[in-house]
């Protein structure tokens, strides 16, 4: 195969990149715009693939652990852009918001650039991740408030 790894020496590992792409994909439009506005300097970029709306077929497993089946599709928007430095960023985000996909791709490119990585990780990705964790925890605590406490149950018998 003639293709080669996009991640070259000195660049971030795939595990890091998967994480930040997941965080960026879950970020709201306003959050991303705000983070973009707050950047001290915005790099010039051009599209390699202008933001484009499409579908992903979501698969699930029979019984949760059996053979796969097609559940239904979801909308997704993708974008690929190149910074002047040559670094290419990708955005794949749920829904139909082209700007979100563009911003996710732009941040992905900045995160692959050694000079900007730490700053964007700290200033953008970690903040977004914290907000997402907080939203998730809030939902979970609300659900936890509806947990049934059976009379017959002895607390000690029910380890969390």
């Amino acid at each position: 195969m003639t293709a080669q790894a996009a991640i070259k020496d000195g660049d971030a590992g795939i595990a890091d990149r998967r994480r930040w792409m997941g965080v960026l994909a879950r970020a709201g439009r306003e959050e991303l715009e705000e983070a973009w506005t707050a950047l001290p300097s915005k790099p010039a970029h051009r599209f390699m693939r202008a933001p484009e709306i499409g579908l992903v077929m979501v698969q699930a497993r029979a019984g949760g652990s059996g053979n796969p089946f097609n559940l239904g599709e979801m909308t997704v928007t993708r974008c690929a852009l190149r910074l002047d430095s040559g670094v290419v960023g990708f955005g794949y985000v749920q829904g139909r918001d082209k700007r979100r996909a563009e911003l996710a791709a732009a941040f992905d490119a900045l995160l692959q650039t050694p000079e900007t990585r730490d700053e964007v990780l700290r200033g953008v990705v970690e903040k977004l991740a914290a907000a997402q964790a907080e939203r998730r925890a809030l939902r979970s605590r609300k659900a936890a408030s509806t947990k049934v406490e059976f009379f017959t149950m002895v607390r000690g018998d029910n380890p969390r």
Partner: peptide, 23 residues
């Protein structure tokens, strides 16, 4: 509407065991 959109990918099977449960 869905017939007007291209399909980009098929997902990996979702893992309901890792669901953030609300009920």
């Amino acid at each position: 509407y869905r017939t007007t959109l291209p399909r980009f990918a098929v997902s990996r099977p979702i893992e309901t065991r890792r669901m953030a449960v609300r009920r």
